[in-house]
Amino acid sequence: MPGPPSTEQAAAPAAAPPTSDEVLAEVRSLLVDVIGDDFLLDTEIELDTSFNEDLELESIEFVALSERLLERYGSQVDFVAWMAEMDLDEIIALTVGELVDFIVTSLS
């Protein structure tokens, strides 16, 4: 729903929407949680990093990531609806940047 953050989400304090850099940092930290440190040591996570080609994220790990993002950002960021619009090939081809853009757009 458009408009400024309202009081209906009482848990989330009203704040300026996060910047792309802040969301990227958050996504990085959640990815470390999901995948584990040892693999990520040799992999830089940037906006053009692909979940499939670069990170070799398994489907169950992608689920874990979306669930963590849901916990972090709440229902304002509706991943399930977003992904429902894509077929499996499109989901697999996603980059970190596309995910960050989606989050930033949803929160602004």
């Binding site: 169950i60 689920v63 399930v80």
Partner: peptide, 13 residues
Amino acid sequence: DNLSSYYYTVAPA
């Protein structure tokens, strides 16, 4: 297989 087969297909609807 695992739960993702449903998470990305029929479960949300």
